[in-house]
Design a protein around this nucleic acid. Sequence first.
DNA 1: AAGGCGGGGAA
DNA 2: TTCCCAGCCTT
Length: 354
Amino acid sequence: MPKKVPHFSKILIAWYLQNKRDLPWRNTTNPYRIWLSEIMLQQTRVLQGLPYYLKFVEAYPKVEDLANAPEDDVLKLWQGLGYYSRARNLHATAKIVSEEMNGTFPNNYNDLLKLKGVGDYTASAIASISFNQPEAVVDGNVYRVLSRYFGIPTPINTTPGQKEFKQLAQQLIDKKEPGTFNQAIMEFGARFCVPQSPDCGNCIFNDSCVAFQQKKVTELPVKIKAKPVKNRFFNYLVVLSENERTILQQRTGKGIWQKLYEFPLIETSEEINISELQNFPQFRTFSENLNIENISLFNEKPVIHKLSHQHLNTRFWIVETSEEKENTVPISEVKNYAVPVLIADFVSEFFENY
DNA sequence: AAGGCGGGGAA
DNA sequence: TTCCCAGCCTT
């Protein structure tokens, strides 16, 4: 512990009570709703997650409602929020809580941690906010606030860093109102001690903040740099049959977008032309029981869909067919499937008249 | 310990 | 462009 700061939590909470945003999950301690909000906000900004939270609470007011929903419905409602394993784990955990725990969430850190999709942060958040347990959360905001305030240069995305900051947060937490303390330090990081150009001149802590005193605010927190992103090349085969049907497939196995739907996909190592496309074994399989009348390229210039760890250089090939194949879906129903944003954007542009 | 996993907002 | 967001899981 770098220094004794007996008033840290008092000052922080006082700031929070004056400056906190009025968010729907702050008007409840219901563990189902707290859990739902915390899962949604993992690696996700409040303003991005908020509309999804409202949709989910309306569609599934109780954990039993979520548990009884088809997985496809849950994924469809989650569409656009990203990190879809969160939605799959959310649904699986709802079933466990509903069917094996009598609809009652665990009321302590250790048992919460056993739930799918619930890690150290989320278990601490639920334990403190719903059950008043003194469990400190450490999210991206907490790393930033503590590394600056105490001038700690330990890289935050390493095991020693995680341990050090967790221990420090645990020492600082207000044991009388742990939930309020946790939300206060996160809100302070999100709204005041921001990553770029924080307003240190007007900060409530600028007389004791080590980073400010030593002019190291821009250097903290320290984070090991991520590896460069990989380029991938996607060729989607958009079937357009005479009677306005197309083909959708569900993604299985590992990798991105598990259990979401997309058009038949041929991934290549580089950009290809139409004759190269037709020579791929996957294309031959695809076209076996299909009566293809014409193939055209929708976008000459690839759409570059950017994920945090890969760039998807994507071209859509329009495959007009005169016969109906099995496993086709009416184009008018495509909008009912959970699809990646990359597909949703294409669909809304190309199928807007269907 | 390292890598994979989305999408979007802000500077 | 780059950074990073109320992180977690698998290998």
